[in-house]
Amino acid sequence: MAQLKNEMKFEFISKSANESFARATVAAFVAQLDPTISEVADIKTAISEAVTNCIVHAYKNGLGTIYISVKIFENGQVIIKIRDKGCGIENISQAMEPLYTTGGAERAGLGFAVMQSFMDNIKVTSKLEKGTTITLTKNIIPRVAKNGQ
């Protein structure tokens, strides 16, 4: 098990103005691992997907709290959890299928596909009426390896 380098937690209410706040906050914290611009962009996009899902799906009938925790490890691993206490997902594998959406005409049904493609791992746990937790993992390549030394 890799050694923990740092950890943080924050929470906020499910207002759409907080989507940019959440991704910028996580990106600022992960900066300690010296990621590339493209690694930061991947993480920001995945956070934006997960947080937007809490706002438009989990808490579709009102406001709720969104909880995010981030752990970074000495070997460059980042583990991010995004949790809501919203409606939950009945069928997780169906929800994760590309283009599947319950969100109507303006939603593409691609959030999970984007998280899957931009991160190294995704785990979804959910319980109806209790809420959903998304665990995203990304391995930031250490600078030395990036420089090919």
């Binding site: 991704r23 920001k44 934006s48 997907e49 937007t52 303006e106 593409a108 984007v114």
Partner: peptide, 16 residues
């Protein structure tokens, strides 16, 4: 500067 799947939905919506 930045876009997530909401941008894809925006394009699909304008297509329709």
């Amino acid at each position: 500067q930045f876009m997530d799947s909401s941008g894809i939905g925006l394009i699909m919506g304008r297509f329709k």
